[in-house]
Design a protein around this nucleic acid. Structure first.
Lengths: 254, 254
DNA sequence: ATCAAATCCGCAAAAAGTTGCACTAAAATT
DNA sequence: AATTTTAGTGCAACTTTTTGCGGATTTGAT
């Protein structure tokens, strides 16, 4: 990391900075000042200009490569508007300093995307895509529960995950589901079901998020009874007639 | 950089300026004034004309070659073609039924993308993006080593990851790096360095993949000595002169 | 909560750029 | 040939840009 000898023009300096960013994914203002032989203020001004032009992401102390950001592709998500509504309702359950377990699926990912920017909480997840989305949030902590990956759902499963979950006592768990009826939550994949069971067991309260389309559907494997969950969150208003048969003691419909 | 003796005509002057630009990619108005023995005002007027004619790019203090046109903003991946070359070389190290540990970064991700479709092996990784890429492969097993996530680099770190790595004995480890010189592999993030150390320790053989641009750069934290790795894989041919000082017993340059 | 580092803000000095104008010399016109 | 025209150049006054610095403020880590 040797200093540059010649005095560079502004453009050259900024090009140099971009090269460093592309090479090392991150730069420190102090380092750049030394390398370029200019004051840190000048470096900071350059970084601000480049950030404004969208060439990099400025952070406290330096800057980061823009390519290192998860690009969310909302066009591919089925029923996005409904899921956004659900996610916004679900977000109200999360408060500062909570420990929250999140599952996979596009609805939960949408929730992760919509978390308030000033939220300070700790999240656990088994989903790669949820985790990536959470990485874009500035103030939260994210812990990934590793294990064997299931390829199509991109979540980790297995004994390793289960035993980690058994060590956790979270305030809240939010998961999607494949099917839900008036009796229980069901799903198709045995490994995923076991993880979900462990997630519920590891949390004081559990929320299930799902688009209303799935109400009344059933799959082969049971995750839990409807009474085992505390919140049911859909795109419908809480007093919608579709919830007949779902209401019961201790279950809040949002 | 001598001053010109004879007084030049405008056209000759501008031709001289273009020659300097093509030679050095940059010129300073002050230098040109001295060299051409005219006032800076005249130089500036010349530069303005040339810029208007699209022959160069005028900037505060002088002008830059049009080819220099720093076209940063690699919306995709920086130096992707080089990384593809590297990834193809690295892929030859992986054989059926191997246990392989992969790191993060775009080069490794490219490797994950280019794995032969019929490969049957088991992969461990701490990188969310590498893991996602591996999920697209039909026949391999993927195990994610979970832990606290570092947001910028989207990898998991911490004691959890380290101790899991300590339980693994893999055949091969392939990782990118932020910086490499003839002495050692270095990086910027302490947590990431600790994980990389553990990855190397957990593998019979270790490979470092990097674009040749990074050769000769150094960062603050040491991952390992150059002699601790078994393969160095770059976009250059194995017999390239750039490897002077890198070659040593037990290190294969690919 | 506390402390050091990083950032922001304004300012002032230096560097670079702009403009109008006068002067020169070559080119064009009569 | 004499005169007008015109492009080119340098100078000086003024404006803009760039940069570094001191100090107030925010941020992040402990």
């Amino acid at each position: 990391m040797h200093p540059i000898q010649t005095q560079l023009l502004k453009r050259e300096r900024q090009a140099f900075i971009m090269k460093q960013i592309n090479l090392h994914n991150r730069v420190l203002s102090a380092d750049l000042g030394l390398m370029l032989n200019v004051s840190e203020d000048t470096v900071r001004r350059d970084l601000n200009e480049l950030a404004e032009a969208g060439e990099l992401v400025k952070v406290h102390g330096g800057a980061l490569s823009k390519s290192y950001h998860y690009d969310y592709a909302p066009s591919t998500t089925y029923a996005l508007s409904e899921k956004t509504v659900i996610a916004q309702k679900a977000a109200t359950l999360i408060e500062d300093r909570m420990f929250v377990i999140l599952g996979g699926g596009t609805t939960v990912r949408e929730l992760a995307r919509l978390l308030p920017l000033d939220l300070k909480a700790t999240f656990f997840t088994v989903s790669l895509t949820t985790a990536l989305q959470l990485c874009d949030h500035p103030t939260i902590d994210v812990i990934f529960l590793g294990g064997t990956l299931v390829k199509n759902s991109q979540i980790s499963v297995g004994g390793e995950v289960i035993s980690r979950l058994n060590e956790i006592k979270a305030d809240l768990c939010i998961m999607g589901t494949n099917a839900i009826d008036t009796e229980c939550i069901t799903d198709t994949d045995l490994e995923a079901v076991q993880v979900k069971k462990a997630m519920i067991k590891a949390s004081k309260r559990s929320a299930v998020v799902t688009i209303s389309e799935k109400l009344g559907s059933t799959q082969k494997l049971q995750v839990c009874e409807l009474s085992d969950i505390d919140y049911l969150i859909t795109d419908l208003p809480a007093d919608a007639p579709q919830f007949v048969g779902y209401r019961r003691e201790g279950l809040v419909v949002l």
